[in-house]
């Protein structure tokens, strides 16, 4: 007589499509002449497969569009290599960027940015769900000179910044527009900031240029004045007043879009 373990193992292998349905006929718990319920087992395999496909497709809509007819096949290969290992359904999709980057050389030959695109899409998912409280406090107008030296920004605690080899945001925009994304993209380093809005709970995405990226990466230990000074340093050939005006505008904008969620006193 087959043990419960043996039955569960056999069924799981069939349902996850690792073994053919016929393999169940060897179970010793089958009575003489009893036929394994192949139709029922196949239905479960299909339902489980649909479930995986649904969730992965909903998390990676851009990868799905780019891969087009290869999408379903890619999902099947992914699930086979990285079967869902967590009780959170969405979590079953978290290793997809790793799968693309490490195990899909043929896809990467044609679409070298695909691993980064998958990372971009997973990051958004992760930030939607991350259990981090975001408190927003008021801010002092930067027209006060004293505020420049005595205050610095508080960064949204969900902020993640990625540096990609490819212009991922541009590729995403092209996919959204439905044109041009099938062309070959050349490597062009890009910086993307993502964070969760404390009010709408939606993820906001900011495409950063090189200087904005540098200033933002130092912002948690800078005063507003330090940030302005850095902007001038990073643009030695530019009119310093214009650089300071630009950085003030950027700081105001980051507060407006809740990338900065308050301010801290320097030295406290």
């Amino acid at each position: 007589m087959s043990s419960l373990r043996e039955i569960e193992t056999t069924l799981t292998s069939i349902w996850m499509e690792r073994q053919p349905v016929e393999s169940a006929q060897s179970l010793s718990c089958l009575l003489e002449g009893e036929k394994f319920d192949a139709d029922g087992a196949s239905l479960y395999a299909r339902l489980i497969g649909y479930g995986h496909s649904d969730v992965i497709s909903s998390i990676y809509p851009y990868c799905a569009k780019v891969l087009n007819r290869n999408w379903e096949k890619t999902i099947k290969q992914y699930v086979k290599m990285f079967p869902p290992d967590h009780f959170h359904l969405n979590s079953s999709a978290r290793k997809f960027p790793q799968f693309i980057s490490e195990h899909c050389p043929e896809l990467l030959d044609k679409l070298p940015y695909l691993g980064e695109l998958a990372d971009y899409e997973w990051l958004e998912m992760e930030l939607l769900e991350i259990d981090t409280a975001i408190s927003v406090t008021s801010k002092t107008p930067l027209s006060e000179p004293q505020a420049f030296v005595s205050l610095g920004p508080v960064i949204n605690p969900t902020l993640k910044v990625r540096t990609y080899k490819y212009p991922i945001q541009q590729i995403v925009d092209l996919i959204d527009d439905g044109k041009g994304f099938r062309k070959k993209f050349r490597p062009a380093q890009s910086h993307v900031a993502m964070y969760r809005d404390p009010y709408t709970h939606k993820v906001r995405i900011v495409d950063l240029d090189e200087n904005a990226h540098t200033i933002l990466s130092e912002a948690d230990r800078s005063s507003y004045g330090d940030m302005a000074r850095r902007a001038v340093e990073l643009n030695p050939t530019r009119n310093p007043e214009k650089s300071v005006a630009d950085v003030i505008e950027m700081i105001e904008q980051f507060h407006d879009i809740n990338l900065f969620v308050g301010e801290r006193k320097i030295g406290t």
Partner: peptide
């Protein structure tokens, strides 16, 4: 059809 169990992500917002 299939019973939906997932909480899936919302629309994205691109700023700046």
């Amino acid at each position: 059809g299939r019973k939906e169990m997932a909480e899936v992500k919302h629309a994205r917002v691109l700023s700046a």
